[in-house]
């Protein structure tokens, strides 16, 4: 139940963006990827997610839960992502955003899960609010919960705390890590900030 990268690298034409990377991220482990701007950290995450923009392309293998993800479209990889922006859909309410990634099923079950999620977020009564009415911290937590409700097999975090102020940053960071570790989700985190590295966590440089 891990995320394995085998000799994964990204190319632009003939030039390689970063050296081939082999790595195993265990269940519940958060591996931090660091490197200078332009070193290819975000490209690495896109290669894992399978949505590298043209004309970039990736070479190597991504294996999740023992399955090779080559040729699996990004939406079918079961890899969740958090970005610098929370990217809550502005035309959907908080509740609708949370339901968006939830697996299809009976309405009652989905609503029950939504209620639990809102309780967990301490946002009961916020389900019909529009995302722009929430505070930055609330939005970040909703974005994380939305990703978790989709039950991903792995998570990719692309500097998700970089736009938060210092106080909020540490709170949301702890909140995020505890949820990911609780669910045993292998996670790759890209960041510039050494403070984001989880205690005792591995760091790799590209």
């Amino acid at each position: 139940m891990s995320l394995v990268l085998e000799k994964l690298s990204v190319y632009l034409g003939d030039s390689r963006i970063f050296e081939p990377l082999s790595l195993t991220v265990a269940q519940g482990e958060i591996v931090t990827v660091m490197g200078a701007s332009g070193s290819g950290k975000t490209s690495l995450l896109s290669a894992v997610a399978g949505d590298l923009p043209e004309p970039l392309y990736a070479v190597g293998l991504v294996i999740l839960q023992g399955r090779d993800l080559t040729r699996i479209p990004p939406e079918s990889r079961r890899i969740g992502r958090l970005f610098q922006d929370d990217l809550l859909f502005p035309h959907l309410t908080v509740g609708e955003n949370l339901l968006f990634g939830m697996a299809r099923g009976p309405k009652i079950e989905r609503q029950a899960m939504l209620k639990m999620a809102l309780q967990h977020l301490e946002l009961e009564g916020f389900e019909n609010r529009e995302p722009h009415t929430l505070s930055g911290g609330q939005r970040s937590r909703v974005a994380l919960m939305r990703a978790l409700l989709a039950k991903p097999d792995a998570m990719l975090l692309d500097e998700p705390f970089s736009k938060l102020d210092k106080t909020l940053r540490s709170t949301i960071r702890e909140y995020t890590y505890s949820h990911l570790q609780e669910r045993n989700i292998p996670t790759l985190l890209v960041t510039h900030d050494p403070e984001d590295v989880p205690t005792g966590g591995r760091v790799i440089y590209v």
């Binding site: 949505d51 990736a58 070479v59 293998l61 090779d68 080559t70 040729r71 990004p74």
Partner: peptide, 22 residues
């Protein structure tokens, strides 16, 4: 389908963002 395609494109992770897969 994935296995079949992997046989053809082994070790090449083709991006699918532009057209969103088959």
């Amino acid at each position: 389908r994935a296995e079949l395609l992997r046989g053809v494109h082994n070790f090449t992770l083709l991006h699918t963002s532009g057209e969103g897969g088959p």
